[in-house]
Amino acid sequence: MKRYIINRLLLLIPTILGVTFIIFTIMSLTPGDPGRIILGQGAEQADVDQFNRDLGLDRPFLVRYVTYVANAVRGDFGLSYRTGRPVYESIRNRFPFTVTLAFLGVLGSMIIGIPLGILSAVKQYSFWDILGSVSAMFLAAVPGFWLGLMLILFFSLRLGWLPSSGVGTYQHYIMPAITLAIPGAARILRLTRTTMLETIRTDYVRTARAKGAKERTVVWKHALRNALLPIVTSIGVSFAAALGGTVITEAVFALPGLGTLVITSIRMKDTPQVMAAVLLLSFLFMIIILLIDLTYGFIDPRIKSMYR
């Protein structure tokens, strides 16, 4: 088990290197240069060239890449082209919002999706099952920005209960978290229903019933744990995706998150800022995937015995 974890952590190194290379290449080979974008269309060409030279952009691509990696290994991720401040500053400011939002969103979708999915499976074809399936399909089809706007319209403008934008209190997180949770909840509901339907028909669940176990024990102890693997995968991937993909939600609720930062920086050709943000996100992504795999081992002893 220990060796497995160490191996997986070591594998992070080549993966991260690969990520840096791909992002760096894309940022360098796409048209547009930071000097022109930051100084504006009206600036003199000489000033633009000088600006780019100051950033070291006149050097060959590979030299710049190797320099970047060498600095990054020592913990120096560079200065933002746009603000001239170290890139980690804006990341440090924005990261907590994004993590909180992603966490709340995924938590919300779990709290809604898993119990309703179990209910739908256990009472297959009942009123609850049909209601669950229909609302899941509806909610999965609702675009995030529309849902966010409707929430603002209703809870902020009509009722005045919740703030429509910005950060500060926990109330600011309620609507963004719901916006993020709803489509995820729909997906988890459907997934839970499917896998539960499969497991409650297995022989070992029948064995549990033949022991005289209560239906509740049968569902929660015997069926759910076996149905959990795909659900855990889905939750982990949703969380990882939510870290980088909350841009729309952030935009609707004017939240200063990482997603917005990445989008703005890409537009500004602010390579160090993009690199740092993407590196952090991909690192987290891989850690989460590792945690999912370790969770498998706890859920299913057959998988644990393979982690050698």
Partner: peptide, 10 residues
């Protein structure tokens, strides 16, 4: 079928 009649996670 003893292969499938026991719960694999217990």
């Amino acid at each position: 079928d003893p292969m499938s009649s026991l719960n694999p996670v217990l």
